[in-house]
Amino acid sequence: MNTLTLMWIAFPFLVGFVIYLFPKLDRSLALCGALVSGAYAVQLFVRQTPLTLRLLDHFGVSLVLDPLAGFFILTNALVTAAVILYCWGGGKTTFFYAQTLILHGSVNAAFACSDFVSLYVALEVISIATFLLIAYPRTDRSIWVGLRYLFVSNVAMLFYLVGAVLVYKVHHSFDFAGLRGAPPEALALIFLGLLVKGGIFVSGLWLPLTHSESDSPVSALMSGIVVKAGVLPLARCALFLEEVDPIVRFLASERHCWACSMPCLRKMPNECSPFTRFRSWGLSWRLQKLVASMP
């Protein structure tokens, strides 16, 4: 089972690079990568028992795969498959499919990991892949929007790193569970990083322009999966620490209000699309359900 999980994590990256070697097969290979993820998520639902992997002692990488992560992984697989099918006859280049699959793999990794450093690496890979996808048309505007995104996310991740080392200082481990007993400033810095990556209101004000200015497939990828890579770790932290519970609950409902009011306040074609709005409602609803179902 452990080998299967590791293969599942490595698979999209591997296929992403193989796509460059066989440009003719780009769409089929990309679709195959998404379907493998979907199958893995279904298998997680069937197993029901959470799988915990701890590689290289307690300093190393730890992964947690439970049905909760399964929902997110399934979403990831569905959104990626939908985007690939949408672009099937659209004349996108091999580069686009390879980047989409690499993005897919890094989002999967972000959903699976349960320590701060692996999460950091996964989130940074997500930023780079997203930047490349946003800047893909290479117009001035797209490059500028991509640069803005990269700036915001990198600065947020630097604060997150400071928070992570504060957790390490107390527990000599980067595990999510170390958040209990960590100083409040560690919590604040880590939450700052994750809230910015999750595009949640005030810290997520980069989101509307970035989403509306990118291509519609890229916009769908960003709203469908990229922002959730920040949200699932946030929910996991709330599961470890009941003091955080009211904060996450508040953010979930606030995101809900924001999702309804923002499209009306500003002229944003992509953000106005019903798909995106339902996505926001769905996410906030899920988060509230999740927090409500906590023991």
């Binding site: 940074e124 930023s127 780079i128 930047f131 490349l132 800047a135 290479r138 001035d140 490059i143 500028w144 991509g146 640069l147 990269l150 700036f151 990198n154």
Partner: peptide, 14 residues
């Protein structure tokens, strides 16, 4: 380092 190099390429284009 990789992020900075990406940004510098973007800035060169701009």
């Amino acid at each position: 380092l990789s992020i900075q190099s990406l940004m510098l390429v973007g800035v060169m284009k701009l």
